[in-house]
Design a binder for these strands. Structure first.
Length: 260
DNA sequence: AAGCTGCGCAACCGCGGAATC
DNA sequence: AGATTCCGCGGTTGCGCAGCT
């Protein structure tokens, strides 16, 4: 525990990990007086912490509705989707994951997603990695969610819409995307998902080559065994050994690590 | 058993914008 | 209206732990 002294004033501030006693003081104070106005809260509560530190401790750890534990596949999917739309706007993303903090989501992204990008030896913002997320990771999450027992229809609907939106965004994206939407899922301009496009809009796959037709801006080669399945509510699939991005055909082998 | 390494996570820092004085 | 303080966000750091050698 470090103590910071500021000038002539005897304003010693504690830093580092919070103690149980400090937690209790903060929780009790907020229970009686509410949160907000963090600097004065810190002073009145008798905590030798900055207001920022108190706010962070409350929001990220002590708040009663904070959810802890593993990020579920549903949450993973949502994080991938929302990050593709908004980038590193963690607090905005966190608003859509009840109980999860921006800090936790940010940590998840850095430790898991960026790790995967590193394993693929590509930048997390690269086309290659976005392809992997779009065509492999997210569909597999969707499949996994669907396969799991007890998935509510509402949840399924959300991800079916979500999945459809990826397709819609990919197929309808113009050659000059808006500044807001530099992501690969740039089709949605509002917070609500678009309705799935009609089946007639689905690009055809040349079974001999695996090349997608239609108005896809980039071809996506599927190796034998790869598949696109639009029958069961807008999902995609691909298998180990799939090739992505014809301009840089590469094979990253077994993708089983993508979902852990 | 000890040292090393990588991971996950809590906490801090710097900055920009909003609110207050 | 300008200065100061506060708040919230995103980036970064560092610690503890588990697994590996």
């Amino acid at each position: 525990m470090e103590v910071v002294l500021h000038g002539d004033e005897e304003m010693d501030l504690r830093r580092g990990p919070w103690t149980v006693e400090e937690d209790l003081i903060l929780v009790n104070y907020i229970a009686n007086h509410g949160d907000g106005r963090w600097n004065s809260l810190a002073r009145h509560a008798g905590l030798k912490r900055t207001g920022k530190s108190c706010r962070l401790r409350w929001l990220n750890y002590l708040r009663p509705d904070v959810r802890r534990g593993n990020i579920t596949p549903e949450e993973q999917l949502l994080i991938l989707e929302l990050h593709s739309r908004w980038g590193n706007r963690w607090s905005k993303i966190a608003q859509h994951l009840p109980g999860r903090t921006d800090n936790e989501i940010k940590n998840y992204w850095r430790t898991r997603v960026q790790k995967h990008a590193k394993q693929l030896q590509c930048d997390v913002n690269s086309k290659q990695f976005k392809d992997v997320m779009k065509y492999l990771w997210m569909p597999r999450l969707i499949e996994r969610i669907r396969a799991a027992s007890g998935v509510s229809p509402a949840t399924t609907a959300v991800y079916q819409q979500s999945s459809a939106n990826y397709y819609h965004a990919t197929t309808k994206e113009t050659s000059k995307p808006s500044p807001e939407s530099s992501s690969c899922f740039a089709g949605s301009s509002s917070d609500s998902f678009e309705a799935p496009p009609p089946l007639s809009d689905v690009p055809e796959v040349d079974n001999s080559t695996g090349v997608l037709g239609g108005c896809w801006p980039e071809q996506c080669l599927l190796s034998p065994g790869g598949y696109m399945d639009f029958d069961q509510g807008w999902s995609w699939g691909a298998t180990a050994g799939d090739h992505l991005s014809t301009d840089c055909l590469w094979n990253v082998g077994d993708y089983s690590w993508l979902i852990d």
